[in-house]
């Protein structure tokens, strides 16, 4: 079954069905290409992360978070490995990995753009910032562009409402963004 072309079949038939988080990335086989390119996550690193937690099942979320931090997404084979090593059923690993927004089951771009849509940022014009970023990058929240350069996400209040509308790129906060400043900010990233 591994040789199938999930991109072609998957999306239509999955619909709201199983593994939506996997299916979404697979339109036009893009996810497939990206996946093969980004397979770099080596298993030594995973072993290392699991070892620091002494392979305890109770640290499942911690382990997943650290892998997410290093790799920016959680490939299926990594989840299988974690499930094996921590002796947690794969079903539970999948449930945890799909329930939290922190975890991504689809490959992410090199730079993660987070736009705050909390109440304060919203009234200060977060929508305009979001529109502008969407315009410039050509992606919607939750998506990654063709060159794996940016991933766009909307986030809730980051706790710095006086800086709104606020945009974070790779954890660096860009405050009081006006749509005009966004292009300059995005240009700095390769």
């Amino acid at each position: 079954m591994k040789g199938d072309t999930p991109g072609a079949l998957g999306l239509r038939l999955w619909g709201r069905g199983m593994s939506p988080t996997y299916a979404r990335a697979d339109s036009s086989g893009l996810g497939e290409r990206r996946r093969s390119r980004q397979k770099a996550m080596n298993s030594d690193k995973i072993d290392q992360i699991i070892n620091t937690h002494q392979g305890q099942a109770s640290s499942l979320i911690q382990v997943l978070m650290e892998i997410q931090e290093v790799n920016h997404w959680l490939p299926r084979e990594v989840l299988e490995k974690v499930s094996e090593q921590l002796e947690v059923p794969l079903s539970r690993v999948l449930r945890i990995a799909t329930i939290y927004k922190t975890f991504s089951l689809t490959p992410k771009g090199r730079h993660e753009v987070h736009i705050c849509t909390g109440t304060a940022c919203k009234v200060r014009g977060a929508q305009r910032v979001l529109d502008k970023v969407q315009n410039l990058t050509g992606i919607k929240p939750g998506e990654t562009d063709m060159d794996d350069k940016f991933s766009l996400e909307t986030v809730n209040c980051q706790g710095c409402c006086t800086l709104g509308p606020m945009m974070q790129i790779d954890g660096k906060t860009h405050s009081r963004m006006s749509p005009a400043e966004i292009a300059d900010a995005l240009k700095k990233y390769e």
Partner: peptide, 29 residues
């Protein structure tokens, strides 16, 4: 599946309004 048959072949995925059951293909097969 988790408690009686102990196969863990089916799980809940996602949350809130999009929460749904999902069989894990590798185990289900």
């Amino acid at each position: 599946c988790a408690e009686v048959t102990k196969k863990n072949a089916i799980c809940f995925i996602d949350k809130g309004t999009t929460r749904e059951i999902s069989f894990i293909p590798e185990i289900a097969a």
